[in-house]
Design a binder for these strands. Structure first.
Length: 325
DNA sequence: AACTCGGTCAACCGCGCGCCT
DNA sequence: AAGGCGCGCGGTTGACCGAGT
């Protein structure tokens, strides 16, 4: 009877898997400006080839400004244990009692070690609370001065994916990289695992600290200024960023700006795009069978006017390491 | 140095609830 | 009233990484 709503996203035409830097930026930018009243329509409006569900998950679990990254403190762990006693596997309910923590994160922590720790504890019930294998206790110790300082510092957020990223994020440079800029680094984008995102996605302006919590030590150079601006102009700027031009401008800044070189680069970019269009059959000829969404993406491209690299590189062609992350 | 194994965690999948038509 | 869909939630998967051999 009821006509119901329009069908959900066509799953054959949406990208799946790890999010690229460009996608993250686009999603963040869009939500900062437009909010997320409708997840289903959001991907299209934002120019993302993603399912709305995927966008929602990405935002809630990772990109949200208030999401608290990093290790759980012993206090938080205690809270989780108590709440789990009360609510069971109601992760969202537990998460609501832990500001900044997501249900997914809590679920992971519970399944990966809290559960084990508890079972061990019940086996040896006479032993005191043991945090020796807690993620919040790198190298089996939570008493490191730096760690304690970090846990006590509101403006400091610990980065759980430290093992996947070693350098200071340069989130604007992420957008600026062009495939042709790094021809030698064409390795598949095999390990995004969002480490780049976690490096810049605590957009509250806090300093993200990467404590190398499990193995390494924490050093001051691992603190990263997050280039976040709450000013909507910043997000407008992001939206208008042409990565290629950004590359050029940055490059030119670094190299004391050479107009001729810039022109060359732009031409190179255009050539690159033309090459890709030809390769992918996007230029007039028959579309590639391997690209079922070609028609969709091109029309979408025209419709919402989003940058071609997002279409051509739904998976960013360079690995996060290539961005100096 | 090469390989295996286990831990971690982001992302996907599927289901249920409640709203919409 | 009934069917369809969006959203949120919990369970599961698979890739990555470091430690151990």
């Amino acid at each position: 009877m009821g006509r119901g709503r329009a069908p959900c996203c066509d799953k054959t035409k949406v990208k799946r898997g790890p999010w690229s830097p460009a996608e993250d930026l686009r999603l963040m930018s869009f939500i900062q400006k437009q909010g997320h009243s409708n997840w289903r329509s959001l991907p299209k409006e934002a120019g993302l080839l993603r399912c709305g569900k995927s966008c929602r998950l990405r935002w809630i679990n990772y990109l949200r400004p208030d999401v608290k990254r990093g290790n759980f403190t012993p206090e938080e762990e205690e809270t989780i244990i108590k709440l789990h006693n009360s609510f069971g596997n109601k992760w969202s309910k537990i998460a609501s009692h832990l500001p900044g923590r997501t249900d997914n994160e809590i679920k992971n922590v519970w399944n990966t070690y809290l559960k084990k720790r508890l079972s061990r504890k019940t086996e040896a019930s006479d032993s005191p609370m043991d945090y020796s294998d807690s993620p919040s206790s790198p190298s089996s110790s939570i008493t490191s001065n730096e760690d304690q300082i970090m846990e006590m510092t509101d403006q400091t957020v610990q980065e759980p994916n430290a093992k996947k990223s070693n350098e200071k994020p340069e989130f604007l440079k992420v957008m600026s990289k062009h495939p042709s800029d790094e021809p030698k680094e064409t390795a598949s984008y095999d390990s995004p695992t969002s480490s780049y995102a976690s490096n810049f996605c605590n957009v509250s302006g806090a300093i993200v600290t990467r404590p190398e919590e499990r193995k390494g030590s924490t050093t001051s150079d691992e603190k990263n200024e997050i280039p976040f601006e709450s000013d909507i102009d910043f997000w407008n700027l992001l939206d208008t960023l042409d990565p290629y031009h950004t590359t050029n401008s940055e490059k030119n800044e670094d190299e004391n700006s050479n107009a001729a070189a810039k022109l060359d680069d732009e031409n190179e970019c255009k050539e690159w795009l033309r090459y890709l269009e030809n390769e992918l059959g996007l230029t007039g000829g028959n579309g590639s069978d391997n690209l079922p969404n070609t028609e969709h993406t091109t029309s979408l491209h025209q419709e919402i006017n989003f940058e071609p690299e997002v279409v051509y590189f739904p998976i960013w062609p360079s690995s996060p390491q290539n961005f100096g992350i």
